[in-house]
Write a protein that binds this DNA or RNA. Sequence first.
DNA 1: ACTAAAAAGACATTATAAGTCTTTTTTATG
DNA 2: CATAAAAAAGACTTATAATGTCTTTTTAGT
Lengths: 134, 134
Amino acid sequence: MMELTRKGEYAIRGIVFLASRPPEQVCLLSDIAAAVDVPPTFLAKIFQQFSKIGLVKSYRGTGGGFVLGRTPDRITLLEVVEAVEGPITPNRCVIKEGECPRDTSCNVHPVWVDVQQQVRDILNSVTLQKLAQR
Amino acid sequence: MMELTRKGEYAIRGIVFLASRPPEQVCLLSDIAAAVDVPPTFLAKIFQQFSKIGLVKSYRGTGGGFVLGRTPDRITLLEVVEAVEGPITPNRCVIKEGECPRDTSCNVHPVWVDVQQQVRDILNSVTLQKLAQR
DNA sequence: ACTAAAAAGACATTATAAGTCTTTTTTATG
DNA sequence: CATAAAAAAGACTTATAATGTCTTTTTAGT
Ligand code: SF4
Ligand code: SF4
């Protein structure tokens, strides 16, 4: 239960690797994929998502590739995970008020709110800088 | 991400309802299903799982049905969830040592261990008694 | 024997995950 | 400007898991 998908795992591996490289060095997707052992075509999709929200910056054409969108100390694991997996939602009812008709009277509901909060807090407290250091 | 399945949600609803009933009262599966708005055949499967590990006690034949296997203050939400969803595993690598070849050197690994611990702690601190009170 | 109920197992359907393939767009460089 | 290198975009597969349903069997009370 509550398992990260491969996509999420790959996303983390890829961007942590990128964070471990010299700051201004443009990295080829194919090199990243090889380094972290992920199917290149799959990682491409993931980095496209990163690029759209600015987590990474991409350069197209000859000499192109990827760099981090921000310094690694300002990117958290939470952002990375939510970028590809969507929001942390231990149960439907925490997505928004009224998702479940029972939510006002339900004693279980606050537990899921708590779980969501704790998990978000943990992931938010971890930066790529921390993860990239050896 | 990290979303409880319907099965898990239904399982909780069902057993919480059972916990809210007078202790020795034998409940029909069909009644429970109707009360918590779950497909009866699906809930049957769930309660079979409960029964196997003793979370509930079942009586077959005429006058049969279900009662809690223990008093509601000694059943935690963690047990209920893990009974039907399996262990809380935010990522493969926390299942057991060596699941991921990188786990010894990986800086992300301890984060997932932490998440697992926190979630288990929260769910383990909630009893059916708490959940069943109105 | 008859009936009420859960247990067991096979089956069906749908949704999501996981990954591939092809085509298009962008850009540096000779 | 032609070419090649690289990411972006979109369509497509395939595998796995979620969400049930249906039928038959076992058990137990009357
Ligand atoms: S935990 Fe309660 S509020 Fe949330 S989905 Fe279940 S019944 Fe609804
Ligand atoms: S977090 Fe680290 S140890 Fe866990 S699966 Fe990913 S690479 Fe392996």
